[in-house]
Design a protein around this nucleic acid. Sequence first.
DNA 1: TTTAATCATGAAAGCGCTTACATTTATTTT
DNA 2: AAAATAAATGTAAGCGCTTTCATGATTAAA
Lengths: 334, 334
Amino acid sequence: MATIYEVSKAAGVSLATVSRVMNGNARVSDRTRDKVLKAMDELGYKPNSIAQSLASNRSNSVGLLVSALHGSFFGNMMSTVEDVLRNAGKHVIITAGHSDEQQEKDAIEFLLDRRCDALILHAEAVSDEYLLELSKRDVEVVLINRRIEEMAEHCFYTDNELGGYLATKAAIDAGHTSIAYISGPLFKQDATERLQGHKRALSEAGIKFNPQLMVEGGFHEDEGAQGYLDLVAVNQPFTALVCANDEMASGAMTAAREQGVLIPEQLSVVGFDDVLFARYLYPKLTTIDNPIQKMGNEAAHWVLEHVYKQKKTSAHTNLFAPKLVVRDSLMEIK
Amino acid sequence: MATIYEVSKAAGVSLATVSRVMNGNARVSDRTRDKVLKAMDELGYKPNSIAQSLASNRSNSVGLLVSALHGSFFGNMMSTVEDVLRNAGKHVIITAGHSDEQQEKDAIEFLLDRRCDALILHAEAVSDEYLLELSKRDVEVVLINRRIEEMAEHCFYTDNELGGYLATKAAIDAGHTSIAYISGPLFKQDATERLQGHKRALSEAGIKFNPQLMVEGGFHEDEGAQGYLDLVAVNQPFTALVCANDEMASGAMTAAREQGVLIPEQLSVVGFDDVLFARYLYPKLTTIDNPIQKMGNEAAHWVLEHVYKQKKTSAHTNLFAPKLVVRDSLMEIK
DNA sequence: TTTAATCATGAAAGCGCTTACATTTATTTT
DNA sequence: AAAATAAATGTAAGCGCTTTCATGATTAAA
């Protein structure tokens, strides 16, 4: 591989000049620029990004932490982030935290060791304090799906309360009055917010919240199935079931069907997230669009602007509004 | 951040010695080693991986190319690869090729610019020649889901013919004799191999292959739906439908159901891949397990051994055997 | 003991770039 | 035309490591 030195010799200029035309910052006369470009071309020169990093103290890499690489929730977000950053010549190192505090810390430590210029984190298990501390180090950190007051500008998140509200509101608008709810784990902020939204929709419609019609799950499919069974067991009939995410909705639907319940004729179901497989389900799931992909996009652009000083392309939003996605699992009640 | 220089001063030894204890290769007396370790600890020293890379001419990063970051097919594979390599202190740069020749080349070029020590590629669109050429450069390249004779040792792939055979065999074993087939795009090797397997199963059972009962799709859901419709249009009744992947099976199932066809009572369906959502489908999809995750694991270990000289942990297989996964979408015919 | 062989450590030259500063060359200004 | 200013280019010192080679300290062999 040709080095900058060989290019400079071939072009008959100094190292510095070659570096200048590469980086396009300083002014170089058109004549020399052409000479250099030609030499680069002839030698098939490619800058060594590692040497660039060392000399410039920028790794041009950004770390991305997600809970899991597989699964439906992160795919599009990772995809967007990778796309935006790669088009800017940056590379992204993706790691998985598996919703576990130690694993998240390890992953972040790893990214730090790699000298990432910025970190885009979907961190679920580490504390606010840890993240605050982290943001004081010499990396920029931005948070997805989480809001910490002290670093609000660095946070991109959904209005989960609104989402929860919309989900239940949809059921109410369809005429349902007995509405059960399978919540996410209540130690997670998004789960509690969604539940609040659920309650608001109920009270707005003058329906009293019935604790017996709510169970807490862990956002996984099997807990959706179990949740449905538990709900049925208390013997309080309900015609609609709102779930705090699509996985649990899927589990609940399967469990209900195994009991011989027709969906949506006998039971309407609403999910949350609108993950990829929501439309593969039968019946196709009515759910809440959680615009995580847009958040990824914003986060990536934020990094480009704040860390790599690209000029602003558009205004930033930190708060993203969820929307109802109408499909087939919610039915008008007679 | 402390540098190696500060550590060496604190420990009262030379740079070289510190480097030695870091890398554990050369021999250092226990006394000095302890001194150095202590100094590192006190200073909170972390080696600068970029400087290491520059000096050692190893980036400790491996590039991973997949078709798409989202979608069900790659998730587990990426996950495994990331996990194995990160535990070895290597990092993986993931890029997406979107099954497009130019995009795949761009992505590979990008990884090469990043000075990856190795490339793990799930490349669908570039030619064998291109890959062969690539493998002559100074990166190790390993291929997933593709076999090229000249670099067979570097290839990890499924026995697609066997998979296609097993899928159709399952239908035959359940008593079906009129079996339709929705193929993948026939310019892709895996699609043609699966089709061959299908034909072999047919002929082994003494069933004549009927070209009218086969359509070619593009591995996407909508083409599964369209394929089903086209198949019905030719007016040759069939009781089982084998699809070359799960996406198309899902599309076909939806289309059939919309026509009022009961699955599996009136139509049995078999898929291929066993992607994550296969079990979310209704009815749960009987399909062929395509062990892509295992291939990812093998590929990652191969890189560790051949590029980073880790000792061999187990024997390698290049060819992976698919298996039938029995669920609910295939029914015994009376 | 003397000599050779072995082991532990240090000195210093890179790795391929960026960038502050110095120098040269071209352009204005008076 | 000389002096002042601006623009283009070069020089060289790092960035934080690895690694070769040389040297000094030990140990083993004679």
